[in-house]
Design a protein around this nucleic acid. Structure first.
Lengths: 147, 147
DNA sequence: TATTGACCTTACCATCATGGGAAGGATTAC
DNA sequence: GTAATCCTTCCCATGATGGTAAGGTCAATA
């Protein structure tokens, strides 16, 4: 099948399929005489695998490892689990950062009248010192770059 | 003071200070005869404002608006609150997406032995069909692009 | 058969916020 | 006076994705 059909079947855009080939996440597709890429069921299966890993927030780099582990039938399940647990930890770190931001913002917003008057604790909070949101992230790193 | 001192005083890197000037988030700094940028207390105050807004996850575009509102003493507090609430909603959307990924991954990981044996429900879960994580996000959009 | 529309190809550019580094000039400290 | 530390601008890289343009291919239809 052509790249368009493979895209529909896998849920990965044609743009990304070509990109994944370019960065060697997937092996180069076979070509017809007129240079059209062609895909078989196996290829689509791989693309679906990638699609699902992406949906779970894995990076391309992690997916390279996961694909290698997928194809290696003799690898230990602990190898896979280690990557998953590491990724879970990263997701939880991001969640904590977002929760800290949300908490601070909600606190500020709750003290803002939200009417036509100009005084606003939100913007004053930006201009003055904000209380520690309690992530334990050293503030010199900020929070945004963690999300 | 020079850009280095302003950076230390505000917590914004010199790289970013120049960048913010370039994209017109801040007004061009005054220059010495030898083209060095110089900053006063007011400028540092603005940079601190930016730093705190960034730490709360606001985008540059949002910060442009926030800075304008900060300087406009006659604006309604509802204008500020609206931006804050919108941003809170976006943060909560991201948090939900991350929570959904975490939930799915933890579920898969909990069924993985994590030993030397090769069978692994995690990687099999990627290869086969994953159950709906329950975000209500149409799966054609994926989750990763939401985070 | 000729045309049309839907596909495919590559190549380049944009995003967003940030950092790295090079080449060269200015200032400061000793 | 020299060395170290600043500053300047300019260009490049990131990660994952989309857009667009210029051109080739294929299948169906008039």
């Amino acid at each position: 099948m052509n790249i368009g059909e493979a895209s529909k079947a896998s849920g990965v855009s044609t743009k990304m399929i070509r990109y994944y080939e370019q960065i060697k996440l997937i092996t180069p597709a076979h070509r017809t005489e007129s240079s059209y890429r062609t895909y078989g069921d196996n290829d689509v299966h791989t693309l679906q695998f990638i699609r699902r890993a992406r949906d779970l927030g894995f990076s391309v780099e992690q997916m390279k490892t996961l694909l290698a582990l997928w194809r290696d039938r003799s690898r230990a399940s602990s190898d896979v689990k280690a990557i998953a647990l590491e990724h879970i930890a990263e997701l939880e770190r991001k969640a904590a950062a977002i929760a800290a931001m949300t908490k601070t913002l909600k606190h500020l917003a709750s003290h803002c009248h939200g009417d036509e008057r100009p005084d606003c604790p939100i913007i004053e909070g930006f201009a003055d010192t904000l209380e520690d949101s309690g992530t334990g992230v050293p503030s010199k790193f900020g929070l945004a770059n963690v999300v």
